[in-house]
Computed example of a mutant assay.
Amino acid sequence: MNVRRSIWRDASLTPRIMGIDARGYFPILIALYYPRVWTFGTALLAIAGFFFMEKKGYTLPVLLRAIRHRLRGTVVHARAWWHHRRFHD
């Protein structure tokens, strides 16, 4: 039995360049726009950071969610702040 592979199978996968999420190479674009030694150094440090982040099992969206969770705190109200002020003492 010959099963054809769907062309949409890998459509949701994140593109990777040399094992790192392709979004991690965005600092190189900034360094190409503003070519200085320190911008290339900063871009390479950022890419190394993304590499180590990938080795730990984090992706960029997961890292941003973790940072947002740390900034927000542990208490999450189910209602808006104005609703609590209006109807509770």
Rank of each mutant, 00 (worst) to 15 (best):
Y34W: 12
A43E: 02
T14D: 09
G57I: 02
I28L: 15
L63W: 13
R68Y: 09
L44A: 15
T39D: 01
N2R: 14
P15F: 05
H77C: 06
G57R: 01
Y58E: 08
G41Y: 12
L64C: 08
R4M: 11
A80R: 07
G57V: 02
F87R: 12
R5I: 15
L71F: 08
A66P: 00
T39H: 11
A80N: 02
T14E: 12
L44Q: 06
K55Q: 15
L32F: 09
V3A: 10
V76Q: 09
H83K: 12
K55P: 00
A11Q: 08
I67V: 15
S6V: 04
L45T: 10
R65H: 12
E54R: 11
T74C: 04
I28R: 03
M53L: 15
K55D: 03
G41Q: 13
T42L: 14
N2M: 07
L32W: 04
A43G: 01
A43C: 11
R5N: 03
T14W: 03
G19T: 00
R65P: 00
W81F: 07
A66N: 12
V3Q: 12
Y33Q: 07
R9I: 07
G19N: 01
S12V: 10
R36D: 01
R36V: 04
F87C: 05
P27G: 01
I7H: 06
H83Q: 14
D10C: 03
R36T: 14
M53P: 04
A22I: 15
R72T: 08
E54D: 11
F50M: 06
R65Y: 08
L60D: 00
L13Q: 14
P15A: 11
W8S: 14
Y25N: 01
S12T: 13
F50T: 01
L13N: 06
Y33N: 05
A48G: 09
I47K: 04
A43W: 07
P15Q: 11
R70A: 14
D10Y: 13
A48V: 10
R65S: 14
W82V: 06
G73M: 05
G24P: 00
F40M: 05
W82N: 02
F40H: 02
P15G: 03
F40P: 01
A31G: 05
M18F: 13
L64R: 09
G19R: 03
K55V: 08
I30C: 01
R68S: 14
R9T: 13
G49A: 12
R23Y: 03
M18A: 15
P35T: 09
D89R: 10
Y25S: 01
